[in-house]
Every structure is written in C-alpha cells, then in structure tokens.
Design a protein around this nucleic acid. Structure first.
Lengths: 335, 335
DNA sequence: CGCACTATTGCAAACGTTTGCATTAAGTTC
DNA sequence: GAACTTAATGCAAACGTTTGCAATAGTGCG
C-alpha cells in the first residue's frame, strides 16, 4: 500500500526541527550543525523522502534540466532514426547526467516557434542544446536573440551569433576526398545535400580537394535526402541512365554510403576495385558492413561533453565561443 | 534585449481582468465568455506569454511529463548505442508528444534505486516507461509495488504484477528457427544470452522448433553479450576452435547477426549457401547490409503507441493488462 | 417591482520549497 | 555580571499557478 507522500514539513516534524532546518540539512548547508545534518539526511533516506521538484523549481527559478531539441527539416526527412543522430543524443545524455542535470527530450513539434518562451519562460529547462542546424536557422536565431541559453550541434564555421560545436566538416570532406584521390580515384562523386549547413561544408571540402587536383570537370554532385534509401534509389537510377561514370563516392553520411554500397553491389560493381567509397560519421555499422566502410569519424563523446560544458558555462554567466572538433579518417575495406 | 518575463498576473493586468479570469481563459474554460477568452489568448500570443510550468505543476500535482527509463544491465554492457533501443525510444517520443506529454529521458544512474520516490514523489513525471527488463527485475518490482504508474517494454510472457508490452519473442524465435530449418539447416546455432528475459523467450522458441524437428542434439548455444563486437569475436573464436560445425544461425538481435555475418564473410563462408542467418529486430541496417539480413521484425511504432496509451490509461485509473505484439518474418538474402 | 436564476468575473487560499532576517542559547571578554 | 560575539535554529514571505466560493450584473417571470 503506497503511503501518503511525505513533504519536507513532515520530515521536519519527525526529526523535531523546523522546515527551514530540514531544508538546509538536506542541502548540506554548513550553517546547520553537522550532527543534525547527518541525522536528517539519514532520516530522509530511511523514509524514502524526495523533495518536490516542482516546488523547488518554482522557488529557485531553476530547473536543473537541459532540453535537447532535435531539429529536423520536415521536408528533408532526415529520419530521427538516423543512428548517428541518436548516438549524439545518447552521448549528450551521459554528459548531462554527469553534471547532475536531467534531460528533456524535445523537438520542434513540442516547442513550437517560440523556443525561449516554451523552455525558459515556461521553466521547463535552464538551457537548450539544439541538435542539427537544418537548412533553416531562423528559429535558432530568434531564440538566441531572445536570450535563451543555447548551444548548437552543427557546423562551427557557420556565421552566427550563437555558440556552435561541431566537427571540422570542411576538413573532413577534404581529407575524405583526398583519400579517394590518393587511392586512384579520377571521377569522384559527392552524394548528399549541399544546402544543409554541415553537409555543405563537407561538399566544399570535396570541391577544394578536387580543384587542387585539377579534377574539377570530372567531379559530380548527386543531391539526395540524407537516408540510405534515397542513396540506394538514386544510385540505381543513375546507373541505369548514365552507367558507371564515376569511380569514387564521398557520401555525406555513413547511412548514405551504405545505401550506395548496396546498390552498387547488387549490380556487381566491385568495391573498392571499381568504385571507392568513403562515408562520414563512423557509426557502428561502418565497421560491420562488408566491405567495411572507410569513413570520417566524428567524436560524439567529446561533442556531448563539450556541448554540455559550454551550456553550463553560459548559465554561469561566462562568455563562450564556438569550437571545432578534430575529425579522423578511419580506413577500412571500401577504399 | 530580453525583456522581463511576464507572469500571468501581468498578462491579466494588460487585459484588464483578474488573474483567475486570465488563467481560465488560457485553459479555454467555457465559464469565461468566448469573446474574453479569445481576446486573452490573442494577447498571450502577441506577448509570447507562457505559463510557468513549475508553478503549474506545483499547484496541479501533475507534470504532464512521462519519464523513459533506459534500463541496461551494467554488466552485460548492451550498449545504449544499440540502434534498436534508440529506435524504440524515438518511437516512444513520438507517441508521447502526440498525447501532449513531454519526455524526460532517464536511466538508472539518475533515478537511483527508489524510482517511485525520484519520479513520482519528486514530481518529475506522472508515470514511467521502462525500456528493457534486463536480467534483474527487482527495482521494477519495487517501484511497481510502491504504486508507480509504470509500463515496461519487455517480454509480455514474464510472470509479473506490472504491465508489460513487447513482442511475442517465443513465437519470433520459433518462426525464425523454423525458417532456418525450412531452408535446409540441419545444425542450428543460437547466438545470444538466454538469461535475459526477452532473449530467453527467443531461445525457448528456438529450442521448441528444434525439438519438434528432432534436431535437439544437433543444436548449439553460444552465450554472448548483445553487441556485434561480441558476436564477431565469438564466431571467430568458435571457427578457430571447432571449425564450421553449424549451418544456420539464429541471432538474438540484428546487431549480433551482423557481427556474426562479418566474421563469416571474412573467412569466406558463403551466406546463405554455407550458413543461413536470421536476426531479430529489423533495424534499418538489416536491409542495407549485404547480403541483406532476414530477420524478425518488431513493430516499434505500434509498441511506442501502446506503451504510452497503457500508461495514460493507468493514470486515468483504468485497469490495464500486458499485451503482446505480433511479429513478422522479413525474408531477405541471408537465408 | 421583486424574486429567482444565470452568466460572468474576482478574491483568496493552497500547492511545497528556500532563504533573509529575527531569535535564542551559549560562550567570551572586560 | 553586563555587553558582546558566535553558533544554531525558527518564522514567515515569496515563487506563479489554479480553483472553490463569493460577488456582481443582467435577465425573465409572475
């Protein structure tokens, strides 16, 4: 039988002290005699007492909650199922907890258009981590201007007045493409969506490497949604219409790379002999696929920590700047 | 410049009404004249007003939040990165939002041992969805007995006094194994962890199919952690020590199947000619891998909806029972 | 015209914390 | 022993909603 919930006043009565003393004791306030503090903390434990977070938040004007807002373009349909995105969220979750905060998982559907109002004024969270810049950054802009504590996972090169943490996408794209060229690729193909902030940088890196090699007129761009299905379909369509007129693919994500890989294998195009493939992200599948996938690794663990750290620094009133995470090429069988 | 936050009283003053009227107007209480209601709602919108959720929760004793508790065995190290788990969470998220609730993402690290105290007494959430029974169910038991509104994603056949939603794992295991046998498999191997609630049922299904076929003495069990790495390693080890003494694998999850697949391919074992493989879950990768993976599909979308629905029903005081989701075999190239 | 009734609004209490300030008790100093 | 300091605790207000009840104004009816 669930007994009635204790409130702080009840606990205080049990301990024979006032509510204020009980409150201070639970918060380990040294103004309370050590012995009293320990006694009350012990009592709280034996009675399974927990503070009412709602009351506490109301009084403190702080929630100890960080919201993670997954910001997907409805149109582009990058699925929330993308393992990489979920991995990022999961790593943020760990970092958030390590700092003693809780994680409110949200999305643009719940938060509406006025993020500042919803999260901050609404006292749902103390700050927000936005995952994904998407193509349209107006809402981020707006929330930032309204003074919402905010860190964005995206491309740190973006000209913006909010703080961004992300990989060096340009360099990643360049390194990946350079790797293709080193392996003998002469007719490289970029698979992705250059309009998108992060992917756009990867494309720029691709272009840069190619121009340096003087292969600009051999390079191709295939614009697709960021899903393996889209990649599979578009490679199939391309093979049918143009034949095999490329010998290397730099895919904007591993999921895209794997979709392309599948389409090619089904048509008996040999990887890496006929076509080299490099992906981006280094999701778990990259290692398990066959051939395993050469890819540009993004350090999501570090990213999670940095995102949270910077957000908390903002909450503490410190000035914070964007930062860029190093990427690394992981060579596997597909190249 | 972020202007100072409006409270309900300020909004009321702007509208020239009392706080009570403003409150009722925002909640669309028909006791307030329609015209007044609309005027105030409009005013709230233009001023980007949002209610203070902390205050509201304190007053109402309700949070409109559902916590999702990811319950992993620390020992088994089934990674939170498992794409299937994340997919389940993501589908729960959608369902939760659709019902107008928010999602608090949590884990046993944050919640400690007294889940009821932490979530319910602490007014962090109105109810909890636990993802994964794990091997040790004592904490779930305890929270349930304390009266915590609760639904568990797990195996619905488990004898328990809390509500469980999950796939028909026994049937899934049986169907998968039957499929292996139909395709000519004579020496089947189960890859997984039979101690685990859901996986145990899959193993029982495996055994059942095998015994019906009179192949009990040909069957093998390889106990491993639920990661593709563990699968890869253990298959390699087994090939080295025993050689290829099996001709079909039923893997307890797709990630495990893919790890095994990789190990086999590296040793030039032909799939599906020499060894048939069937997985479980139907994650996105199953379709993209090559050969693509035959697997038992779990309907996570339906699961998410059902979990949330049942939890809300509990909150509404209705009696709720466990339920089992239909599975389906998805035949692909690996068998 | 008085009465009852309805429609609409406002008053004030309550939800459970936290904390500035006041209070008490005990010890210290001259 | 009075005046003062220090240590420990308690009082009461405040955080911003929601809602039972009271109050007011307007309406219809006999």
């Amino acid at each position: 039988m669930p007994q009635k919930k204790l409130k702080l006043a009840d606990l205080a009565k049990l301990a024979g002290v006032s509510t204020s003393t009980a409150s201070r004791a639970l918060n380990d306030n040294p103004i309370i005699k050590l012995e009293t503090r320990e006694r009350i903390q012990q009592l709280a434990k034996t009675h399974n007492f927990s503070l009412n977070a709602a009351a506490s938040r109301l009084r403190l004007q702080k929630t100890k909650v960080i919201a993670v807002l997954i910001n997907l373009d409805a149109e582009t349909e990058q699925s929330i199922d993308d393992p990489f995105l979920l991995k990022v969220v999961s790593d943020i979750n760990l970092a958030v907890n390590r700092q003693g905060y809780e994680l409110l998982l949200s999305n643009s559907f719940m938060a509406g258009e006025d993020w500042h109002g919803y999260f901050i004024d609404g006292r749902r969270a103390d700050g927000v981590i936005v995952v994904g810049q998407g193509k349209q950054q107006a809402l981020i802009e707006r929330a930032s201007e309204a003074g919402m504590p905010l860190v964005v996972w995206g491309d740190p090169k973006t000209e913006a007045d909010y703080v961004i943490v992300g990989s060096d996408n340009f360099l990643g794209g360049k390194v990946a493409t350079q790797h293709l060229l080193d392996k003998g690729c002469k007719k490289p193909l970029f698979l992705g969506e250059p309009e998108h902030a992060e992917l756009g940088e990867r494309y720029k890196g691709f272009r840069n490497a190619i121009e340096l090699a003087g292969l600009a007129d051999q390079a191709q761009l295939l614009k697709i949604d960021i899903t393996s299905q889209a990649a599979y379909d578009s490679i199939n369509r391309k093979l049918r219409s143009d034949g095999l007129d490329f010998d290397g693919i730099f895919a904007c994500s591993d999921m895209v790379a794997l979709g392309a890989l599948k389409a090619l294998k089904e048509r008996y195009v040999s990887i890496p002999n006929d076509v080299l493939i490099v992906g981006f992200d280094d999701i778990a599948m990259a290692d398990v696929s066959s051939p395993s996938l050469t890819t540009v690794k993004q350090d999501t663990k570090k990213a999670g920590e940095l995102l949270v750290e910077k957000l908390l620094a903002q909450l503490a009133g410190e000035a914070v700047t964007s930062s860029q995470l190093a990427i690394s090429l992981v060579e596997r069988q597909s190249s």
